[in-house]
Amino acid sequence: MSIGEKLQSLPKWILFLCLIVTASVLQFFNIPLPNKPQDPAIDYYAFAMSIPPGSTVLVSSDWTNSTHGESGPQFDALMRILMRRNIKFAVYTTADGQAPQVAKDEIRRLNEQRVKDGERPYRPFEDYVMVGYFPSAEGENLAMSINLRSAFAGKKDFPEGAKEPVDIWQSPVLKDIKDISDVKALFLISASNTDQIIIERLAAKVPLVYAVTGISAPQNFNYYSSGQLKGLVGGLKGIYDLEYLMTSGVNHPGADGKIAVASTRVPGDVPPLPGRNQGLGTAYFPTLHAALALMILAIIIGNVGMFMARKAQGASK
C-alpha cells in the first residue's frame, strides 16, 4: 500500500478517537477568544434590549435536548435577557410534545441560579405562563394571527399559592393582550421547521426574532436580510456572539473607555446586561475551533492522499 493509499484509508476508530479527544480536552480550560459579532446577532440583542420592561412577548420554544448544545444556550440567553429586564413572556410550542417540559425544567434551573446569584426568582403565572403544546403548527400559528385569545383558549397554569390551575388569560402576562399585535415580539428557539411556519403565518402581524440551529441558519439568513426577521442567532457562533454582546453591549464604552462592539446598524448605546452572562456558548466555542480544525485536517489528509496515489499510479503507468 502506497503512502497516498494509506493516507486515504485511516481506520475509523482513529478518527473517532481524535474527535472525542478534541471535543473533550479544551473544555477543561477557560480560553478567551477574540470576536467580531455578526450583524444578525447584534440586531437580535439590540431588539431584545429595546423592548420596554413590563411588556409581554411570546416565546416559541420548539426544541428538546436533542439540540441542547445549540438551543439550550440560546434559550438560556433569551431567558436571562427577558428576566433581567422584567419582560413578561408566554411560552408555547408547536414542534414537539417534549418541548414544554424541557422549557419548564430549564426555567426551573435558571431560577435556582438566579436565587444563588441574589436575583429574584421569576414567578410562574405572574411573570411568565406556560401555554403548552399544539400539535398542528400550521393551524395554531394561523389561529394566533387571527384570534390569539381563541387560539390559546382553555389553557391553564398555576399562580403561586393557588389551589387550582387558572385560565392563563387571567394572568398578568396576558390579561391586557387583545390580539397578537399587542405582543411586542415573538422569540423563537427552534430546532424544527417551525421557523418557516411562523414566518408564513405571523411575519406580517408581530416582529419575529429567531434563534435557530446551525443547520437552518443559512436559510434564515435570507429571511433576516429581507426584513422578515428583526434579529437572528444561528448556531454556536450566533450564541457566542449573543453572550459576548450581553457582556460588552453595542456602541458602549467599557471601563477603559473603549467600545468593544461598534455598529452603525444600531443607533445609540445599547448597554450590556448586568450579572452572569457567559453560558455554554462561551464554554463550547474554543472546543468548536479544535473540532473544526480536525475536520479540515481530515479533509486535507484525504485529498493529499488522493493526489499522491494518483501521482504514484501515473508514474507506474
Binding site: L19, I20, A23, S24, Q27, S66, T67, H68, G69, E70, G72, T213, G214, I215, A217, P218, G234, G235, L236, K237, L280, A283, Y284, T287, L288, A291, L292, M295
Partner: peptide
Amino acid sequence: GTTVTMRFTLLIDRMH
C-alpha cells in the same frame, strides 16, 4: 459548513 458546526456542537455538549 453550518451542518458540520451544528453536529460538532451537539457532540461537544455531550462531552461537556
